[in-house]
Write a protein that binds this DNA or RNA. Structure first.
Lengths: 218, 218, 218, 218
DNA sequence: CAATAATCGAGACGGTACGTCACGTCTTCTT
DNA sequence: AAGAAGACGTGACGTACCGTCTCGATTATTG
């Protein structure tokens, strides 16, 4: 709880006693991810017992650093968050976003996708998990997305007064829905059509700007 | 070997032995729903032990009729599915769908919504659950939605060759996303705007029929 | 409870309703014995469920006629009591008894012996069972044994004022002990030696030291 | 890599991990004995659930150390075996053995006797139990008995070439029989008479007839 | 360099719920 | 009225993990 300000040059005040083992920390997070990445091994099936054994670590070591399974999974998820999800700047909002969406879908369809569905699944009965998902995954991406959309607005591709959040939900919602409910394929074609469907709607052309502009009250 | 003629139960060959107790069945489903409807009582916290005790029923009776917790919950949910989720026929597709979406959101925001999130949450590590959700809840509603959309097409409100499933995902996806990730409010205004955003084709102007027409190949 | 005396010619006043099925009764007792006769299938492993199923009978039919497992087994045992256990009259007490003991040991070593050990085993926690064993098996045989011993007394082979019960326990006790504890073989040789050991002791004087000397071979 | 030299615990490699709780072990064995010592609480009525609860112990702890109920009971019995069952050395085989037999009968007639009958009873359908009884109770006592008998042989009280096991069965068999079948009393008088009946060889020839005549009182 | 202190692995502990089995009772239709 | 069929509420089974707790061993800082 003591925050050292300034220079750490010579006197890095370390706590006495054996320091935390970085090897153990990594092994625990890795065995957690490894488990979640397997199909049909959701959060519910994950056991601390297994994680510890797989990591070659005592159970107490897990509990010493993570208060519960959810915290462990949230941490493991955060440490796995891909850095490949960026928005390019092609000059066309539609293309910028379509490309990022394709990357997202690729992740969702990979083994890493199981980690996402595990965290969203478990999050339905443990709000700390969805919170972790929003804070560590969703929001950072939204910030980038806002910028991309604003570029489009500046360029005149999109109307002003656009409810950015709504547009983004309109874009990504169907992807999350298919990802979680699996009632239909999460194909690249679907992604492209989805992107066009939504962004064509908000193209200047028309008059709909009013219905989409953010309600002043809220 | 007396054969009752004219008996209406002629073909209703009863199985021998004591018949299944309807009282027990109802009590089990009810105590399941009751539990899930409480906040923070997710699928994971639900125990068969509790369900049986609450229903005044032996555990074995639960296991006799439902192979696992997932099946029980799916059944309980299905049996509880409100019959208020219908599509009216107002003469306007947009209105028809908007009204049904509002009903859906109302359910999602009610205590019954917890059951849905419990199912979809647990379904992420138990595919039988999402399957049950799709079969018993999603598909029946889709069938009605198709009809509503087709009415709109016939009326000329919507273009022909529309990929109905995609349109429906575009409509409902954002609702499910906000419901499950809770990053933003699931308000009636949002629902209305969402409906208009997707179905704006109704109006003259644009009509991006090409991008939405079902890919011939598929 | 009404005992009809005399002629049953025309009006055998039977209780109304369907009469008890003799077939069922036999099938139940048989499947009970059949089970107990198998090695390692003691009383504890016997289930009414199995007996009923094996006999092709409803469980309730078993419970209608026998209040509990013990009563059933006691009945089954009684119905199986062999009639081959008699004492011959060879003119020598020792031979008379030795022959009967050999027959007894033969039964103990046969599959029927398992029924005896089952009933004595279960009897340790259910006194009705040992009672059944004493009344239906032990006592009838003791009556015969008394007669045999008295013949020997009359013949002068045995002393007067003999405690018959003690002598019989001295004779049979070791057999029951080996039968139940299985710490040593229940061989014909053992039986012969046992018979001689005890009866020589009670002979007027002799001192049969030889019969007690250990068999050289063993 | 410091090796302690001269350490007496050199070969006493302790197993890693938390050591077994002696408290739990004792509590489990005690609650087992306590239960069995009550009349009509046979082996069959004993539940691990009860033992664990009574001992203030998790069920798993019981199962961790004893594979089944039989092993537990055998252990509990063995641990309770009174150390009063020894053979004195009075100079007379008959007296040595008679005294030990009286002690045994005293145990059989006490509450501890229920444990013995529970073990032998249940042992009839679970061979591991009788085996445990033989190994942990019977055989150790036999070893002492052999020594006592051999002393008698050396002293000339008993003939050489005696089948020790048979003599011991002849001595103890009737006691076990009366203990298990309860057809007659297990009185101190019976024990004395039984001892004399079998070991009369000691005496020149005669006189034992009186001790075998039935006690007038009874 | 020894003392102190925190972490490590291992694994036993008291619990809770699991899913199964048999109990003894009941309800139904058939004989 | 008794039969077979079989569902019912009950309760113990033996197992799997939970999260906590000793252990001895290890690895740092401090006196």
């Amino acid at each position: 709880m003591k925050v050292k300000i300034g220079d750490e040059s010579c006197a890095v005040k370390r706590t006495p006693g054996r320091p935390r083992s970085e090897r153990a920390r990594q092994a625990i997070l890795n065995s957690t991810l490894e488990f979640l990445e397997q199909r049909e091994n959701g959060f519910a099936n994950l056991t601390i017992e297994y994680v510890a054994a797989r990591a070659g670590v005592g159970k107490a070591t897990v509990y010493r650093w993570w208060p519960n399974k959810a915290a462990l999974v949230a941490d493991a998820f955060a440490s796995s968050v891909t850095h490949k999800l960026f928005f390019p700047d092609t000059g066309s909002v539609c293309d910028d976003i379509a490309q990022q969406m394709q990357q997202l879908v690729k992740i969702f369809r990979s083994r890493r996708g199981h980690v996402v569905s595990a965290i969203l699944g478990a999050g339905q009965s443990d709000s700390t998990l969805v919170t972790a998902f929003r804070d560590r995954f969703l929001k950072p991406r939204r910030v980038e997305a806002y910028a991309t959309l604003r570029r489009g607005i500046e360029r005149g591709e999109l109307p002003k007064n656009l409810d950015l959040d709504h547009v983004l939900d309109a874009l990504y919602g169907p992807i999350y829905m298919r990802f979680l409910i699996k009632h239909d394929g999460l194909t690249p074609e679907f992604v492209d059509q989805q992107c066009q469907l939504v962004l064509r709607q908000v193209l200047p052309c028309v008059k709909a700007s009013k219905s989409l502009s953010k309600a002043s009250g809220k």
